[in-house]
Design a protein around this nucleic acid. Structure first.
Lengths: 350, 350
DNA sequence: TTGTACGCGTTATCAG
DNA sequence: CTGATAACGCGTACAA
């Protein structure tokens, strides 16, 4: 028993406390805690023992303060264009980059076409030469996967944001479980439609976007399980843009004039609603993301429910995750899980 | 123009930069930034100008590090007893108290009976004498309001958690908009019930809990607006406990044997479901909070949807808010808004 | 009214 | 392999 045991310890234990308890210097304790090389096995053991005994947790604020090097993070997002969710995500990333964990990251955001595999892969490879970490909206394509694997192999951690690149060596995917989101959509549509039999149309941005495809898969799956009387009779792609979406929907409505419900898994919802209004249709509609585009549609009842993810949370999480990777810190899993939220007119945030 | 303008500034501006730019010392810049007295008006102006020019934002981590005093925060939560949500909230508070903003708060959690106004008021008053700030699950009662006003008047900030005490001088309410939550419940129940006419039962913990009453109000309101064919024909109180809830529900089922749906605004849902199972009833059920009690009920389909708030988020937010008040920092409103989430079997987190 | 100087807990450099 | 020690950005006694 040391003297330290005798006084009531209100202050969290510091690395000095650990060093003292282990009978080593601060520097050595630091080496052990940060798993740096050059310490005898026996010494490592003693320090780790002290850490455990004292319940030491390193003070992230102080660590950040002391670290000299600033890390460069490249953010690869699609041109916002007609997609307000991406615009908001970009803004959220910029905000997060000078607060909290992002504080000493130099974030550069670059537009990258998320619909085209080769350009995105090239952008990732190039970013890997100038940045210490990458945060990118993914695209599920071999070229992109290889690009990610290449930069990760060079020691540049990559976090995929919103749309994953499964099978790649990315450090982590930051976004919702899109299959679950699709299931939720099916569940809501089915119940909102009152269990009636009927036809459903699905609108995607593109089948190449992993998030959209996952949503569709989950949607079909849950529909088959729970609402076997409802059929998906058409899937169209609108490139996440209002104009293209409007055209695509108008076209399919010629063949399927009275859909029971519509699941819009991508952006471009204003176009969808225009196409419906033209024909004076009022099917049950479930769409994604809360944006200046979708908000009034939900309020006015043109959209029945929105399935959303919080871009602010995603941005902070992505930066926390790469920051942790870069500095060898742990993360609180619970805080990083991005939720599938459901918005009705009644729980719309201001 | 100073020399600083000529180099590219990757590093966020520090207080030193501000001081230099304004031609004052670090200490003076600090006084202005933290609104401490003893600075000439003209000097204040110059410093504020510099802050604006440079876009200075103080480094919270460093500020926390430098501050000597540790603040004592008292947490007043009801005895967890049969209420697993409160148990989780308590755990979340403890975790949050040694991470991030909570890092240099000394949190003491004390059980306080949230169903009894006088004991809670007494606990608040007493806490006000030993703590620098208070985080408490509220009760909407004049005695509690007065207790809060009294300790706040003494300079002890109070944050109400989960259940508010409206009209009191509390610094802030940290929790969901319960009226909106009730509206969401009505919306879901109505639509899940397929627009059919029928009777609805509501189960509360107690009418004295502000959060439960708000939920009921919002529920009735939205029901009247959107589903005029559905009537609330019974409201029972179960003290948030399974046993009492079971009894209360069993009793009312004798008078109203075939409810269309049930809205459970409080805890004790296991008891509710038992009472229903006894009579082999399967109405649409919407309840609150994801806990070890409700999770299996949602998975098995005994509960159709859960309306939840994230206790982890609430705990971190509450500590951030009092920490900010204690140290004069600002907060990011967007990050502090607690969301009304809807859980279906399909978007249940692990 | 303003400035100087030290310390907070951690990291990194440099000398043993 | 290990130990001193100087930063990091800010808060605060204390001096002027």
């Amino acid at each position: 028993m040391s003297d330290a045991d005798e006084r009531i310890e209100q202050r969290p234990p510091t690395l000095s406390d650990v060093a003292q308890q282990a009978g080593v210097s601060l520097a050595t304790a630091d080496r052990v805690v940060n798993k740096r090389p050059g310490v005898r096995a026996e010494t490592i053991r003693r320090v780790e023992q002290a850490v455990a005994d004292l319940g030491f947790e390193r003070n992230l604020g102080a660590a950040q303060l002391a670290r000299r090097v600033r890390h460069r993070v490249m953010g690869l997002l699609p041109e916002a264009g007609g997609n307000p969710f991406m615009a908001r995500l970009r803004q959220a990333l910029e905000e997060a980059s000078h607060t909290g964990a992002g504080r000493h990251l130099d974030l550069t955001i670059q537009a990258a076409d998320t619909f085209q595999a080769e350009p995105l892969a090239a952008a990732i490879l190039e970013a890997g030469t100038v940045a210490d970490a990458i945060v990118a909206v993914g695209l599920d394509h071999p070229a992109v996967r290889e690009a990610i694997d290449a930069v990760v192999a060079r020691g540049v951690p990559v976090a995929t944001l919103v749309s994953d690149v499964p099978g790649s060596a990315r450090l982590r995917y930051v976004g919702i479980d899109n299959r679950a989101a699709g299931r939720v959509a099916a569940h809501l549509l089915g119940r909102f439609a009152g269990g009636a039999a009927g036809e459903i149309l699905v609108v995607l941005g593109s089948r190449d976007l992993r998030d959209h495809r996952d949503r569709l898969d989950g949607f079909r799956e849950a529909l088959a399980e729970r609402f076997p009387l409802i059929d998906v009779t058409g899937v169209v792609e609108g490139q996440d843009e209002p104009a293209a979406t409007r055209q695509a929907v108008a076209r399919i409505l010629q063949r399927q004039p009275r859909p029971l419900a519509i699941y819009s898994a991508g952006a471009g919802n204003a176009g969808l609603c225009e196409a419906l209004a033209e024909r004076d249709l009022k099917p049950v509609v479930v769409a994604h993301e809360l944006t200046p585009e979708t908000r009034p549609l939900l309020v006015s009842g043109r959209i029945d429910a929105l399935i959303v993810q919080d871009p602010g949370h995603e941005a902070r999480s992505a930066l926390r995750v790469v920051e942790a990777a870069l500095s060898g810190a742990r993360i609180d899993e619970r805080q990083e899980r991005i939720r599938v939220e459901i918005l009705l007119p009644d729980n719309l945030p201001d």
